[in-house]
Amino acid sequence: MKNSIKLKTLLAACSLMAAASAQAEPTMANAQAMAWQCAPCHGTNGQEFKEAMPPLAGMPAQQFIDAMTAYREGTRAAVIMDRVARGFTDDEIKAMAIWFEKQPVKQWDKTSLTESLEAQASAAATGGQK
């Protein structure tokens, strides 16, 4: 597998960050773990651009935050996203928003594994902060 040096550096950075916080149980799931849960409807890593459910990959973080917050507060008409959004806190929504913004804006089946691993590592390296 042709992993770039950049990817390996990022993965190492993630491991160090994880190790640093090893003692206390984390208060929330990390962005990647949450974002993966969206895939059955929105595509792997949000990269489904041909369906009724909107693609999340590459969505501007603020647009994601505004939509999820409005669904959660009941101010935006929803079919099921109101029920889903009520499961997430502000911090969790923000972390997912930043993670999805970093994913390739292309259909999943056109994305190589290496390209995706780099995008996921790059998103994880933000630690959920812009």
């Binding site: 491991s15 190790a19 208060t27 990390n30 849960q37 409807c41 889903v84 499961g87």
Partner: peptide, 17 residues
């Protein structure tokens, strides 16, 4: 993956639709 690399587990989150 975390266990194989001796990393602490993250917080679990699940979903169902």
């Amino acid at each position: 993956a975390d266990t194989l690399k001796d990393r602490p587990l993250g917080r679990a989150i699940y979903s169902n639709v």
